[in-house]
């Protein structure tokens, strides 16, 4: 996993570096952010020094009320040798004691013009996505009618060809061949392409093609939440394939279970249409319309009901 350093935060959020520039290569290891109000008041017992520290209006106005020697002491304690940085929000004036302590300890002091809560939530989101569990899967990710469909299967089974046909039908390619997946929260998987092969598709016999140049910017997406897995496999006549769609097969990627459909491949089967319909059917199910279950209910009712009196 890529390391996150204080300078990444400065670049990403366009923060103004006020002091302590020796420390901009410090590594951030936690996505939590601390607002050291208690510490400013002198209570350092549980000071989370390895986190980014955020000083807003409340903390700074309290700080101004302290005696000068206390100010210096608290700030020196706040700037430890592993603190990745202190961010001042709302574009507030930075007290001289903060600048001195930061320069001595090499802790970067940064300033943002925005409100404390919005800075805090934006940086937390950014850090959580950076620290999210990560894996890469062999497959193709396509956005079909807004449903992120991960197409998996053996090499050469026709994943890329199916993706090409789907793009031709107006859907969007996210990644071909190798999908980088990160888990956000406990139930969300976000897939994207490795940067080097973004928007590219490899088709046997044609080679590498650029989907964005060929089909336009509307044919690609940079990332997409994965909701459904379609596994393509060569038709095995001894294997039982789902004929009803009553049971939902699941596939586990990291901690998340995704619904999965196995589709047998045989010459003459139009895979793109089948995958497209699978995505639409998935949407229908999520909207509460489950054709297989409803039909099964009807059938059961018909079998259990008394014979039709007019049908004698």
């Amino acid at each position: 996993m890529a390391k996150v350093r204080t300078k990444d935060i400065i670049e990403r959020f366009e923060l103004e570096l006020i002091a302590g520039k020796d420390g901009i290569h410090r590594e951030i290891i936690k996505s939590d952010i601390s607002r050291p109000g208690m510490e400013m008041a002198g209570y350092f017992k549980h000071y989370p020094k390895e986190r980014l520290q955020l000083l807003g209006k409340t903390e700074l106005s309290f700080f101004y009320d302290l005696a000068n020697d206390v100010k210096q002491d608290r700030m020196e304690k706040l700037c430890t040798d592993i603190t990745p940085g202190i961010i001042i929000t709302r574009g507030l004036e930075v007290p001289q004691q903060v600048i001195d302590a930061a320069n001595n300890a090499g802790v970067p002091i940064m300033r943002s013009p925005h409100k404390t809560t919005s800075v805090m939530s934006r940086i937390t989101n950014y850090l959580e996505s950076k620290f999210a569990p990560f894996t890469a899967i062999h497959g193709v990710l396509v956005d079909i009618y807004g449903v992120g469909v991960l197409i998996t299967g053996q090499s050469g089974v026709g994943k890329s060809e199916a993706a090409l046909e789907l793009v031709k039908r107006g859907h969007r390619l996210v990644a071909d061949d190798s999908v980088e997946i990160r888990q956000e929260d406990f139930d969300t998987l976000i897939g994207n392409s490795p940067p080097l092969i973004e928007h590219l598709l490899e088709i046997r016999g044609l080679g590498i093609i650029d989907v964005m140049t060929l089909f336009g910017a509307g044919a690609v997406r940079n990332y997409k939440r994965i909701s459904l897995v379609i596994n393509l496999e060569l038709w095995d006549k001894d294997k039982q394939y789902d004929r009803l769609g009553l049971d939902e097969e699941l596939m586990k990627i990291m901690d998340v279970d995704l619904p999965k459909a196995t589709i047998p491949v045989r010459p003459g089967r139009n895979l793109a249409v089948i995958i497209e319909v699978a995505a639409m059917n998935f949407r229908l199910k999520r909207m509460g319309i489950n054709t297989a279950a409803e039909f099964s209910k009807k059938l059961t009712k018909m079998i259990e009901s008394d014979p039709d009196p007019f049908d004698q």
Partner: peptide
């Protein structure tokens, strides 16, 4: 720590 299928060229080249 990135694992790709060695039978697929795009995955291999992305490394």
């Amino acid at each position: 720590n990135k694992r790709v299928n060695a039978k697929s060229i795009m995955g291999l080249m992305s490394l």
